[in-house]
């Protein structure tokens, strides 16, 4: 049955504009990173074009592959968490907004399969975007002629982008649960903004490694000094967050009244 449910969940995305819009939006991340690299490398020309404000500062940023990957990890960490919230809101919230949940939840397939299939679709959707983003990054970096590309730096860069994406994905199920709880698009989007703000604030305190939505900003380096490695406690927190989110979504599908 999971095969059929998975097929239908992918089918529901057909002709959906949001898949392409999300790809288009995320494709700006490597382009934006590339622009910064160019500005760092060519500050004089950037200033003439008005791209560099007199007070703008890129202290510590180098126009190298390592610097470019560092920027990508930051951008993927933050934009990725937001994008995953949009994906969760769409996959889980649209069934309520379009009032199709009542059809879906009375079908002769276990409700947990629908929840799990939607998570699989989210993983495939986000994964495809990340792969595209990585490919685009290499193209942008090559076009800019960034120096210092070695197999080790490339592997490390790819690994860190994938790790940031993976942590972002692990905290996403809670947003999916909020979408099923709030029965629509808006509650998960509101929740995403709230957790992004809280994550950034708590990331700057000593509590960051315990708060799931601070762990990505800490790892990406957008909430203070970058954590080069993921603390074991943080790994446990994000894995637990994932488990709680998945179970809560399944329980919500299975037990909650559907009155829409």
């Amino acid at each position: 049955m999971i095969r059929q449910v998975l097929f239908t969940e992918f089918l529901k995305l057909r002709r959906s504009k949001i898949t392409w819009l999300s790809l288009l939006a995320f494709s700006l991340v490597p382009l934006g990173g590339g622009l910064f690299m160019w500005i760092v490398r060519e500050p004089g020309r950037a200033a003439k074009l008005g791209l560099l404000g007199t007070k703008a500062s890129f202290v510590g940023l180098e126009a190298t592959w390592a610097g470019y990957f560092g920027m990508l990890v930051q951008a993927v960490g933050i934009v990725g968490m937001l994008l995953l919230s949009v994906i969760a809101a769409y996959l889980f919230g649209r069934e309520y907004s379009e009032r199709t949940a009542k059809n879906m939840l009375a079908l002769p397939a276990g409700r947990h399969w629908f929840a799990l299939a939607k998570f699989c679709v989210a993983l495939a959707w986000f994964g495809a975007i990340i792969v595209f983003c990585l490919a685009e990054s290499f193209a942008v970096g090559a076009l800019l002629g960034l120096p210092g590309l070695t197999a080790g730096i490339a592997a490390r860069g790819i690994g860190e982008v994938l790790l940031a994406s993976g942590i972002s994905f692990l905290v996403m199920p809670v947003t999916a649960w909020i979408a099923t709880l709030g029965k629509g698009y808006l509650p998960p989007l509101g929740f995403a903004i709230l957790t992004l703000l809280l994550g950034t604030i708590l990331g700057a305190t000593g509590w960051g490694k315990w708060f799931p939505w601070s762990i990505v900003p800490l790892f990406a380096g957008t909430a203070g000094p970058r954590a080069e490695t993921l603390a074991p406690a943080s790994l446990v927190v994000v894995v637990l967050t994932f488990a709680v989110g998945v179970v809560a979504t399944i329980v919500q599908y299975r037990w909650a009244d559907n009155t829409q």
């Binding site: 239908t8 529901k12 379009e98 079908l107 397939a109």
Partner: peptide, 16 residues
């Protein structure tokens, strides 16, 4: 599902 055709909507039901 508004973005799916009549056939596709029914195909979901058929499969499940």
């Amino acid at each position: 599902y508004p973005n799916l055709t009549v056939e596709e909507n029914l195909d979901i039901q058929r499969r499940l």
